[in-house]
Design a protein around this nucleic acid. Structure first.
Lengths: 204, 204, 204, 204
DNA sequence: GATGAATGAGCATTCATTCAT
DNA sequence: TATGAATGAATGCTCATTCAT
């Protein structure tokens, strides 16, 4: 009842601590070394186990990395204040802080680079980290739209407009400026106000 | 006078075709395999040369990849129409088309993933592809600003706001929609119009 | 108390046969091929293991060769008869026989040739084979000196005078004559008797 | 008539300077690197030519090294004083000085190590350096024997007894003591005086 | 004659994975 | 369960040698 012990697994149960240590080590090394450069030996050494112990739980390297990415939890959502601008900025600031904390751009790069060989990586990254973050932004926008603060059919382009500058700045070597979040939010909010008189491009 | 040696130094001249084939093969494999997975043997086989021929020109694998990235030329700039919206959209459409054509996101991913080990890769990618594209956008904006179409002190955040949605869409698995460029441009232009009455965030 | 782990650490034990086979193969190939020409592939094939098994035990080629040289045991000392001349000749005969048996001059040549790059080789050869042999000769001389058979302060030059002709003969292409040992011993013994009236060169 | 120009070699004659530079570079690198580690590229770079120029004159690496060894000249003989002891010591001192000057022990080691693969090396070393030096010693001994200073049938063992301690000292790590030559000579001369009353070992 | 390009063979080392204990 | 031994496949790189200029 308690725990997910398989009925058929007799004998000593697998150590949950080891499992967690392995996944954590794998995630960190994945970000710092990249998929191909990260070796199971490094993971084993960092986690304090043997490589055989890793293979006992995951059949291949790809399996381990997939599991490690699946275990990556997004940071908890910042509390909502009710003010749209404040909430959006808070989410974006938390986003860039998280990226920095976990060496996220390298992790993203690894998943992009491996997309041809191991598409699950990018898929998992999306599901576990990108989409939840976008959902936070979308929900904040939905609340404001429901409150009549603006009109828009499809919110996804707005979400991309909010997050996008971070990536673009990073690619340009301009990351590190904490003002980016406020600027992105203000541009989008200004655009939302200016759009109705715009050339009539439907946001859908 | 002493020694009427030809200016092109003695011995058999280096084959320009081989050199081009190697660089092209390296660039393609870099995008499809990533830095670590790409082997010099693959490059040699694809280019139809021996691995020694590669080492004759570039001392190490990193040197070759660096040269390959340095040889990556940005597509020529789309012709300027004079209309800001049209020009910006043209640049962005060309941008996403180029990325698709050369498997650019995988290449970007490789450079991001290798940043810790081989920072030259990302630096070169910036210098050769990212910054020139940004310059095109900035110049179009500068022309319009000079014509009095809008006011803004620092154009870089606008450039990031134009390019950013592409990256954000890709990360969300939403790429492929050709309408992204027009939406990004319109949002930015609307924001530029709406900003003067905005909360006073200076774009600098 | 905590952890009743067996003293011989966990996991599959290392095969002592393989280890011995590798060291033996390495020593033989070192003599027949020289350090640089000897490849780990050859060693592995001769020992019937994979090259990875070699690297599991020794990190580098130099480590392996060092270990192989360190494992080279000098043949057991010939039994002492009590008669100085007999004992010295026995030691020298055993010396040249050992050299022939293990292709010793090639091994010596390798260590000399590599002295600039891998000085440990010559150092080990000295420590493991040269100096023990010299100690045997010195002890025999010491016993006779203690018995009053001759006088001499420093025995080392006498040891070199006993061993030296072997090397000089080899360099001259004159090796193979078994009489060299008796001649060397008799010359030294005669010199010891003749020296007191000699020109007064102190042997120290 | 002047020069050894082949009748069939028309066109530009081969540069004698280059040839000498190559041989000298090869000899030096042979001593400092050993046969296998010495690369033709190193030789070419040191001599200031291309590797192809080397292959133009010698077909293989072994050919080049053989020629280099054949070009090694022994230093001129020290002038004879007429006194046996003085002359022998002079020859031995010059011997060890030459060895030190040209890194001779490494060169000897290389020839010994390569004996199985390239026996010509050791053969050439003998012919060009070892045997001429022995001849000097033998001639000095012969002059003294003819003058009735001692009796001995075969002088070769005496020559080996004179040279041998140098090798033995080197192998023991005891080289560098300039007194070795005098000690070796005195021991041999004392032995020659003491031998007639010795156990009757014929020196032949 | 002299040079630089081009190559095939080889080498030490790493690594994911499978066995034996 | 957990560990260390063992391995096959690869990889970046070097080098002696042959070609083309």
């Amino acid at each position: 009842m308690a725990g997910t012990r398989n009925p058929h697994s007799a004998g000593r149960p697998r150590s949950a601590e080891k499992e967690a240590a392995i996944l954590s080590a794998a995630l960190g090394l994945l970000a710092s070394q990249g998929y191909t450069r990260m070796s199971l030996g490094q993971v084993a050494a960092t986690a304090g186990v043997s490589t055989s112990t890793i293979h006992l739980r995951w059949k291949t390297k790809a399996d381990l990395v997939t599991a490690a990415l699946a275990s990556a939890r997004m940071a908890d959502a910042p509390p909502a204040s009710g003010d749209l601008r404040t909430d959006l900025i808070a989410i974006l600031v938390d986003f860039s802080a998280t990226i920095e904390r976990v060496n996220g751009m390298a992790l993203i790069g690894t998943c992009l680079a491996e997309e041809a060989h191991t598409p699950e990586l990018l898929a998992l990254l999306r599901q576990r980290t990108v989409l939840p973050r976008r959902a936070l932004l979308r929900e904040a926008l939905e609340r404001a739209r429901a409150a009549g603060e603006f009109e828009a059919e499809d919110l996804e382009p707005l979400v991309s407009a909010l997050l996008g500058p971070f990536y673009a700045d990073y690619m340009a070597g301009r990351s590190g400026d904490p003002g980016w979040a406020a600027r992105a939010v203000d541009l989008v909010l200004a655009g939302l106000r200016g759009l109705p008189e715009g050339p009539g491009i439907a946001y859908s």
